[in-house]
Amino acid sequence: MTFINYASREINCKIVYYGPGLCGKTTNLQHIFEATAPQARGKLISLATETDRTLFFDFMPLELGTVRGFKTRFHLYTVPGQVFYDASRKLILKGVDGVVFVADSQEERMDANIESLYNLEENLKAQGYDLMKLPYVLQLNKRDLPNIIPAADLAAELKRKEEPVVEAVASSGAGVFDTLKAVAKQVLTELRKG
């Protein structure tokens, strides 16, 4: 939920990266962390297992700059992608202002994408949100791999509304900031509506 503090002149918003296991949600955050000046971001907190699979969430606060005299801070979260961590995913969606769905472009992950997208819609509904009305971006990740589905086909399968679709290679950073910009822009535009 967006939090506007007139005393410290700050706006805080929450963005959640969602998607199937190993699709690159944490990699998106890691790239943003590495490519951002230290004064603009806080620590990247990763609650992960010993094998670096996200256990509960990753979290990173990011300050984008000032709008109308207010510092805009985005709290970026990822959810654990593995199917059996559904309870954790539900909790992390509480108070969300914008969602990025990170799809894995590899052919063999298509079913996992569809299952995760369905799960996102269900979990949003359980928290009282409607994906159709929420700031939302579809990222097609891993575009550098050989066995990928053409972007147009993947988008046709996974698009839910007129959301922006961004092709990405999170491991090299391609498309990562375009994705963030696309969702942040929608969140700030929502604020204009009041």
């Binding site: 967006t2 939090f3 506007i4 007139y6 914008g98 929420l134 929502e190």
Partner: peptide
């Protein structure tokens, strides 16, 4: 739609 913003 997201929740209504809290204004402090």
């Amino acid at each position: 739609m997201a929740d209504t913003p809290i204004t402090l």
